[in-house]
Structure formats: structure tokens, C-alpha cells
């Protein structure tokens, strides 16, 4: 039974490795690019250590017992089967550990939920299968475009070598300025989608007929990639999200250029009502269509 302890050791070293991974490695969350993402990253590391400690505690005892208290070593079984004291202790201690875990999480949740006074507001609408963006408020107000996967089909079907950003590239990036509180308003046109950018620490479902919101403030300029994170049908795997964070000047320039191309500002209420109402009909039609094709 030596191999069991070897297996244990191996398992534990893997776990230890796992938790001490450098920022941004492929064993961990991507490098955080916002305060919230940083909080999440840190809490995850702390939790890993706590869990590892409990794990070593529990299985240290268990495997000590497995190695020593075996019949083959002639060990005679004791006959105790009850102890109120230890049972109370091992009920209370986990409770305390949990409180320690919940405390920072609670603070982060409250911060995450606070979408008030944004510098700019963008509406993201999920479609089967692309995203629509409308800049509703702040610099760039009135910009409106769709954003779809730009990886060529030939790459998906292995007829061409896959590019560096395979499946994580779009025709129109969502462009935002650095250091500004950006509020994202979410809805969907047909089924539920989810808007997720790991490096910014946000993920929010887009529910047809309802409006949800979330926010982020990007710390550094750069390009951050994410994907739709709610099964939304056939091409769920093919609706990435690319957020391009520019410094203020570059953003202003981008917005000005983009606005020239956009004819008129979008009225949220009008568009969304029309959208959701037609969404219902479309869902019905789509259902009918779906049963026919294939």
C-alpha cells in the first residue's frame, strides 16, 4: 500500500502547485485588469490555501490511520464510537472558517452590485449568434454596431491553420476608455446569453425581455477577450466578446470617427420594446422552423 501514500503526495504537490501559480498562468484566472477581478483573484487564492490546509489536516489524520492502524500490522481495533466534545469542536470550527470566507466575499458582492453613477453606459444585446452594442450615455453616445466572430470557417473546419486568436476574435471590438466606470446594460433578443470578460471580472446573463446591468473599470489599455457563457444554441461556442481598452485620447478619436458613420442616436426605450415584442414572435417562428430543418 506504499503506492497510496505516493499517490497522496503526488496529489498534494499538484494541489500546492495549483495554488501557488504565478499571476496569469494557464493554471489560474487570467491576470486581473480591474479592481473586482483583482478581488476575485485574491479571494480565490486565499480559499485555495484554506481548503488545502483543511485537506492536509483531514487526510493527514486519515492516511496516518490508513498506514498505521491496519490489521496486517497486527493493530487491534479500539471500540470508541462517540465523543460529544470533539463533535462540537469539528462543527464549530468549520463555521468559523466559513465566516472568514464569507466576509470579504460579502464586501465584493456589494461593490459588484453598485452600478450607480457610471461614466458611460453601453447596452449589449445578445443575438443568436452575435452581440449588438449601443453606446447610450457618455462619450461616444449614439454609436451602435454588431460584433461577430471573425475567425474564417475554413479554420473551424480544419482546412486552414488556426490563427493566434482562434475563436476569440470579432469583426468589431467593443471599445472603451481606460479608467472610466463603464456600465453595461444587458438584454437578449431570442434566448439567454451571458456576457463574460474574465480579465475584467464580469459575467452577466442577458435575459430576453428583461434588462440586467453590471459594470467595470479597466485598469490598463489592452485587448481583453471573453465568450458567451450561457448555452444559446448551435453557435454558442462562436460568439466571443472582445473589449478593446484605449487611453482617453485614443478613445476620443475612435468615438469621433465612429460617430460619423452612425446616422442617428438610438432611443433605448423604443428600440428595446420593439425588440422584445418581436423577440416573442421570432421565438415562435424559430421554434417552428427548427422542427423542420436538420
Amino acid at each position: 500500500m506504499r503506492n497510496k501514500s505516493v499517490a497522496t503526495l503526488a496529489g498534494m504537490s499538484v494541489l500546492a502547485l495549483y495554488s501557488s501559480m504565478a499571476v496569469g498562468s494557464k493554471y489560474n484566472f487570467p491576470e486581473p485588469q480591474s479592481v473586482i477581478a483583482q478581488d476575485i483573484y485574491d479571494q480565490h487564492i486565499v480559499l485555495l490555501w484554506i481548503c488545502l490546509a483543511i485537506f492536509i489536516g483531514v487526510f493527514g489524520v486519515m492516511f496516518y490511520s490508513v498506514l498505521k492502524h491496519r490489521k496486517s500490522l497486527g493493530y487491534k481495533a479500539a471500540n470508541f464510537h462517540h465523543s460529544t466534545t470533539v463533535e462540537v469542536i469539528w462543527t464549530v470550527i468549520p463555521c468559523l472558517i466559513l465566516v472568514a470566507m464569507a466576509w470579504p466575499a460579502t464586501k465584493t458582492i456589494i461593490a459588484m452590485k453598485d452600478t450607480s453613477s457610471p461614466d458611460m453606459t453601453i447596452k449589449a444585446t445578445g443575438y443568436q449568434w452575435m452581440w449588438g452594442y449601443d453606446y447610450l450615455q457618455g462619450e461616444g453616445e449614439g454609436i451602435s454596431f454588431f460584433s461577430k466572430l471573425s475567425t474564417p470557417r475554413a479554420q473551424l473546419q480544419n482546412r486552414e491553420p488556426k490563427g493566434e486568436n482562434y475563436l476569440l476574435e470579432v469583426d468589431n471590438n467593443l471599445v472603451v476608455p481606460v479608467g472610466k466606470k463603464v456600465r453595461i446594460i444587458l438584454t437578449a433578443n431570442d434566448v439567454i446569453h451571458a456576457w463574460w470578460v474574465p480579465a475584467l471580472g464580469i459575467k452577466q446573463d442577458a435575459i430576453p425581455g428583461f434588462i440586467r446591468d453590471t459594470w467595470f473599470t479597466a485598469d490598463n489599455p489592452g485587448i481583453y477577450r471573453g465568450q458567451c457563457a450561457e448555452l444559446c444554441g448551435k453557435d454558442h461556442g462562436y460568439m466571443p466578446i472582445v473589449v478593446e481598452v484605449l487611453d482617453e485620447a485614443a478613445y476620443a478619436k475612435w468615438a469621433a470617427e465612429k460617430l460619423v458613420g452612425t446616422s442617428s442616436a438610438v432611443n433605448l426605450a423604443a428600440v428595446s420594446t420593439e425588440m422584445a415584442a418581436s423577440g416573442a414572435d421570432e421565438a415562435v417562428e424559430a421554434a417552428e422552423e427548427n422542427s423542420d430543418n436538420n
Binding site: T187, I211, D213, S272, A276
Partner: peptide
Amino acid sequence: EVLGQAAWG
């Protein structure tokens, strides 16, 4: 108050 903005006019 969370959503603030009505989808349905």
C-alpha cells in the same frame, strides 16, 4: 431599483 431601466416602455 436594480434595473432602473424598463425594457417595455
